[in-house]
Amino acid sequence: MSQLVRIRFTLNGRPQSVKVPPMKRLLDVLREDCRMTGTKEGCGEGECGACTVLIAGDPVNSCLVPAVHAEGAKITTVEGLAKNGKLSALQTAFIELGGAQCGMCTPGMLVTSAALLARTKGRVPGDAEVRDALSGTLCRCTGYQKIVEAVQAAAAPAPAKKKAAAVAKKAKPVAKKKVVAKKKVVAKKKAVAQKKAAASRAGRRPGASKQARRPAASQRRGRR
C-alpha cells in the first residue's frame, strides 16, 4: 500500500482537501474521494476524453493526471458549470439542440466546450474550430453534428436565451391553440435558420478556412 499524502486544490470554486495515494488518478480522487461522479471513465488511457476536467481552464484527461499534480490546482468539473442551480447557456444549448444523448461523453464535451468558449470570448467559433477543439473527446451517439451546433449556439448567448424561452412556451401544448403553436414552430425554425446562417458567417471570417487544421485524430493517434 502506498503512503497517503494530503492534497489541497480548488474544486468548482470550493477548497478541497483529500488524503490519497500520490499516484491515484485524479479521476478516481474526484469520483471516490470528492464524491463527484459527473466526470466519467471511458477508456482509462487518455483517448476518449470522457474524464476531461479543466485545470486552470485547460481541458485535461483526469485519468492521466496523478493526484499529486492536482496540488494547488483550480479544477472545474461538469458539476461546476451551473451556477446556483441555473444552467449555463452551453448546458441549455446541449439539451435543446440535441448535444446530449446517452450522456457519457457529455461532461467531457461540456467542459471542453466551456474552455473553447472562454477562449473565443463571445465570438462564434467556426465549424472546423469547434471540431478541432472537441477532437479529444469521443462521442458515439451524435455524429458530433448537434454538439457543434450547440457550442456555436451557446457562443451567442442572447439569441439562445430568447430561443430557450420560445421552446419552453411552445412545449406547453394547449389543445385549443394548436394552430398558433404550429405558426410558432415555423417562426422558430426560421429564427434558428437565420441564426445558424449568421453563426456560420461569423465563424468563417476571412482567412479562417485557410488556417492550418490539426490532422484528424485518426492520424494523430496512429495505427499501431
Binding site: 463527484m36 461522479t37 459527473g38 466526470t39 466519467k40 471513465e41 468539473t77 461538469v78 458539476e79 458549470l81 451551473a82 444552467l87 448546458q91 446541449f94 439539451i95 435543446e96 440535441g98 446530449a100 450522456g103 457519457m104 457529455t106 461532461p107 461540456l110 421552446v167 419552453a168 411552445k170 412545449a171 401544448p173 394547449v174 389543445a175 394548436k178 394552430v179 403553436a181 404550429k182 414552430v185
Partner: peptide, 26 residues
Amino acid sequence: LPASVGVNVPRKDGRDKVTGAALYLD
C-alpha cells in the same frame, strides 16, 4: 395539428445529463 408530437421539446433526462447528476452504474 400537433401540440407535443412533432415538436422539439427538451429531453426528459437532459438536465441530469448536463449537470453530471445522472447516475450510471459505476
